[in-house]
């Protein structure tokens, strides 16, 4: 009986040690590979990164209101902002349905010499708010709207 208890305690302590070791190594691996785990950079984060000329990167933020203009039939330009900094984006192609001014967006492409982001791909980001259209309208009317337009 006592031996069984000792054995059990030994197995438990081995597992605890393994748990600590794996937690620490997991934490180190995750913090070391932070750059590759981030799916996109905000315009502010982009300022801190060097050597991005001609590298494919992704940027994300909100499409600034009333910034969307069409340059020609299929080419558009708009501004992505994160509250502090902003960046002009040019894109040729089909836009996702949820792409709107004031909405979250992720652009994949390259930054050119004039600091304009040339996007090859655009993804719309959805936020965590779910509500019926009538509720959204009512909130906007009463001035209790917290989200984006």
């Amino acid at each position: 009986m006592n031996i069984a208890k000792l054995k059990r305690r030994k197995r438990l302590s081995i597992l605890l040690l393994a748990f600590i070791a794996i937690t620490v190594s997991g934490f180190l691996i995750l913090s070391a590979s932070r750059d590759s785990l981030i799916y996109f950079y905000s315009p502010t984060e982009l300022l801190e990164i060097k050597n991005i000329d001609n590298k494919i990167i992704r940027i994300g933020g909100l499409v600034r209101k009333e910034s969307l203009i069409s340059i020609n039939k299929s080419k558009i330009e708009f501004i992505v902002e994160d509250g502090k900094n902003h960046l002009s984006v040019q894109y040729t192609g089909i836009l996702p349905d949820l792409f709107r001014e004031g909405q979250g967006v992720i652009c994949e492409g390259k930054l050119n010499k004039n600091k304009i982001f040339i996007a090859d791909r655009i993804l719309a980001k959805h936020d965590e708010n779910y509500m019926p259209p009538e509720v959204a309208d009512a909130l906007k009317k009463t001035g209790n709207w917290q989200g984006k337009e």
Partner: peptide, 22 residues
């Protein structure tokens, strides 16, 4: 991390951000 997937709507500290009918 910055992800394309949106953050949690139901299980989060400041209460759910999803309408009761949903």
């Amino acid at each position: 991390w910055n992800t394309l997937h949106q953050p949690a709507s139901v299980i989060k500290l400041d209460g759910p951000s999803i309408h009761v009918d949903m």
